[in-house]
Structures are given as structure tokens and as C-alpha cells.
Computed example of a mutant assay.
Amino acid sequence: MALKATIHKAQLQIADMDRNVYADHNVIIARHPSETDERMMIRLLAFALNVTADDNKGKLEFAKDLWDVDEPALWHKDYTEAVLHWIDVGQPDDKRLMRAAGKAEKVSVYGFASSTPVWWKNIQSKLTRAANLTVWQIDAAQSQALAKLSSRSMQLQVTVQDGTLWMSTGEESVEITPQRLTPGN
């Protein structure tokens, strides 16, 4: 018998001063049996950092990356099903990233292991044609602290200012400063 996903619900209150995005979002996350709290929370972090102010061009959604290799962790599709933004977490291989760069207008990766700089150094030369790719590193200690905020039902306040994100339950707070590994602005 196959194991089923565990459902997690999160109420996010987002105040992103860097992008002028202020909104509340109720999200449902289907957590794959093999997924850790840390990885799931990085997906939630990626949602908070990339959700748009409105749904005029479609909306950002959690995808089925651990179930379907042709899907990312999250994606923003427009109403014609064109992929505007492909978001992966972890350390995907260069072939997957090149396919994503060909399918989407924009590709982002959020690495969260301490080995992320080594992974990136080994594949970055293979991705020079992927001008629409941005790779971010979340410090391993910060992502592990973020994992401790995980629960089946979460109420989280997310504040983003000057490139730093604070995620809080009201009782506990985690500060995260993603580091951009790809060149650009």
C-alpha cells in the first residue's frame, strides 16, 4: 500500500516591503512521505518570497515535484497554462534546470543544504545559456530553524525588508537572508 501525503495548512500574513506585496494567504501543502519539515518549510518560504500582489496573470501554486518529475516545487502559470515562474528547492541537476529554463519565463532555485555552494560550483558552467535562472542559498542553520516552526496547522507572519525575511509564529521567529549565487541584480 502506497503512503499518502500529509496535509499541512498554513495561514500566511505577508508584508513584503521590498516588493510592495501585502496579503493574507491560506495555503494547503501536500507533504510527500519522503519530504522533511525543512524542505516543506523552504517551499513555504519560496511561496512567500514569490507570491504576486494580485492574480491578474494567474497565481503561484504548489506543484507535485516529488510525485511528478515534470513539475517543480511551485509554479506560477498564467490563464493559458504558460509557465511564468518555475521554482525548485534543493539541488536539482543541470538537465532539469535547462528544461525548466526552456519552459518558463523565469526559473528560481532555493538551495538549503550546507553543500549548496559546492553543488552550484559543479553545475554553474553547464547553465550559462539559462539567463532566466536565479539560484538562492538559504543558510543551513536558518533552514533548520525554519523547520522547527512546522506543524500541521500554522499561522505565520512573514515580513520581508531589505532582502531579509522574518517568519514568526507569534511565539518563535526565524530570520532568513537568502544569498544570491547567480550573477545579476
Rank of each mutant, 00 (worst) to 15 (best):
Asn185Glu: 14
Val160Pro: 03
Ala101Asp: 12
Gly111Ser: 14
Thr182Ile: 06
Met98Glu: 13
Pro33Leu: 04
Val27Tyr: 00
Asn122Asp: 15
Thr36Pro: 07
Ile176Gln: 06
Asp70Val: 06
Lys126Ala: 14
Val118Asp: 14
Pro72Asn: 05
Asp68Tyr: 03
Asp88Thr: 04
Ala2Phe: 12
Gln124Asn: 15
Gln13Thr: 14
Lys121Cys: 10
Ala131Asp: 11
Trp120Gln: 06
Lys9Gly: 07
Met40Pro: 02
Ala48Arg: 02
Asp24Ser: 11
Ala10Thr: 08
Asp88Asn: 10
Lys148Tyr: 00
Trp86Lys: 06
Ala5Ser: 14
Ser173Asn: 07
Ala23Asn: 09
Gly90Ser: 01
Gly163Glu: 05
Leu66Asn: 04
Asn132Gly: 09
Ala131Trp: 10
Gln142Gly: 07
Thr80Asp: 14
Gln179Ile: 07
Leu127Glu: 03
His76Gly: 03
Arg152Ala: 13
Val118Thr: 15
Met40Asn: 01
Asn122Ala: 14
Ala82Leu: 05
Ala63Asn: 05
Ile138Thr: 08
Leu181His: 05
Asn122Thr: 13
Trp75Ile: 08
Gly102Ser: 12
Gly170Ser: 02
Thr164Cys: 09
Ser125Pro: 01
Asp70Lys: 04
Ile7Thr: 13
Ile7Met: 05
Leu127Ser: 03
Val160Cys: 11
Asn56Ala: 13
Asp68Ser: 07
Thr164Ile: 09
Pro178Ser: 06
Ala10Trp: 02
Val160Trp: 07
Leu146Ala: 02
Asp70Pro: 00
